[in-house]
């Protein structure tokens, strides 16, 4: 009596979005990355096509960050002060794409400028052949200046630009449209807000094939369950055919985890927290792995060892199921 395992039949699927452009396509990237396209829940290959693997990015800063954990400073070494070298090191560590974040100030303390942002992006494009995401500082006015310059500098490269938020997306979307890029649509852990912002951004005329949504990640112990469930709900809605939830999902467990005490602090913490470095990497990877299971398409990490561990996970999960 062979068992009949209940299968779900889905009406919808996630859109495919391609990051990066090669020479033939008007860019300079050595390869492109296509994400999305899922017609089934995460890794249930027997229920529908899952054409693309979860992709892993490493975060690189435009300048040496002041507030990163010493563990990260140690592992990246000298490269941490030079975005081009850092991107190269991230590529060597096995990243699928580079997630470059801009800082409000330059290394000497002066405010960041469009000219500097251009130069940084140029360096990173030269340092690596990987597809690129460039994310702003989080300060709306400054980001509008910097990212317009970045969009022009990287014209044709099909970079992912962010962060589009409900209060600040018009300038960014316009710059992305004018220069053939993608945008990241970020909302605070809410299914309806995710949909709404995708609608607003799409209304400006940018095709849905160029929008990636970021539903906001909480770190393990600091609200991961909210993001996790919002992602599961978004993916279920996408499969049920709700068009505006059918964007691939990007998550940033690296950023979230490395700011919490468990990862940041090595001394004066309870002994039951265990070895600092292993704990930090476990924090980042258990957060990331949980989000992969909830439906993440693009995962941004900070530590190369985390990337290595996640690589084994996504490779195994991507393996098509053996015939039953």
């Amino acid at each position: 009596m062979p068992l009949e395992i209940p299968k779900e039949k889905w009406a919808g699927k996630v859109r495919e979005v391609t990051l990066g452009a090669t020479k033939d396509q008007g860019g300079t990237r050595a390869r492109t990355l296509t994400v999305g396209g899922e017609a089934a829940l995460p890794f249930l290959h027997h229920e529908g096509a899952l054409p693309h693997q979860t992709v892993l990015g490493l975060e690189v800063r435009d300048r040496k960050p002041d507030d990163w954990s010493p563990l990260l400073a140690k592992v990246w070494g000298e490269a941490i002060s030079d975005p081009g070298a850092w991107a190269k090191a991230a590529e060597a560590a096995g990243a699928d794409f580079i997630f470059l974040t801009l800082s409000p100030t330059q290394a000497d303390g002066s405010p960041n400028t469009p000219a500097n942002a251009r130069q940084v992006v140029r360096k990173v494009l030269q340092g690596t052949g990987l597809p690129l995401a460039v994310i702003g500082t989080g300060q709306a006015d400054l980001d509008n200046e910097l990212l317009v310059a970045v969009a022009e500098e990287a014209k044709g490269e099909r970079i992912l630009m962010g962060t589009c938020e409900d209060k600040n997306y018009r300038t960014l979307v316009a710059a992305a449209m004018a220069n053939d890029h993608l945008v990241q649509s970020k909302t605070p852990m809410d299914v309806n807000l995710s949909k709404q912002l995708v609608i607003l951004i799409h209304d400006m005329g940018i095709p849905l094939e160029r929008i990636i949504m970021d539903p906001t990640t909480g770190a393990l112990g600091y609200g991961i369950e909210y993001g996790y469930s919002v992602m599961e709900r978004l993916r279920l809605a996408a499969l049920q055919g709700d068009s505006m939830t059918q964007q691939p999902i990007l998550v940033t467990p690296g950023e979230e985890c490395w700011k919490v005490k468990e990862a940041k602090v090595g001394e004066g913490v309870p002994g039951s927290w265990g070895d600092w470095e292993r704990r930090s990497i476990n924090w980042e990877t258990t957060t990331a792995a949980s989000l992969v299971h909830a439906g993440a398409d693009l995962v941004v990490l900070r530590h190369p060892e985390s990337l290595r561990l996640l690589r084994a996970l996504v490779n195994d999960l991507a393996r098509p199921a053996q015939a039953a």
């Binding site: 039951s272 292993r278 476990n282």
Partner: peptide, 9 residues
Amino acid sequence: FDPAGLYPL
């Protein structure tokens, strides 16, 4: 048994 792995779990 490794507290650094058990705590996150």
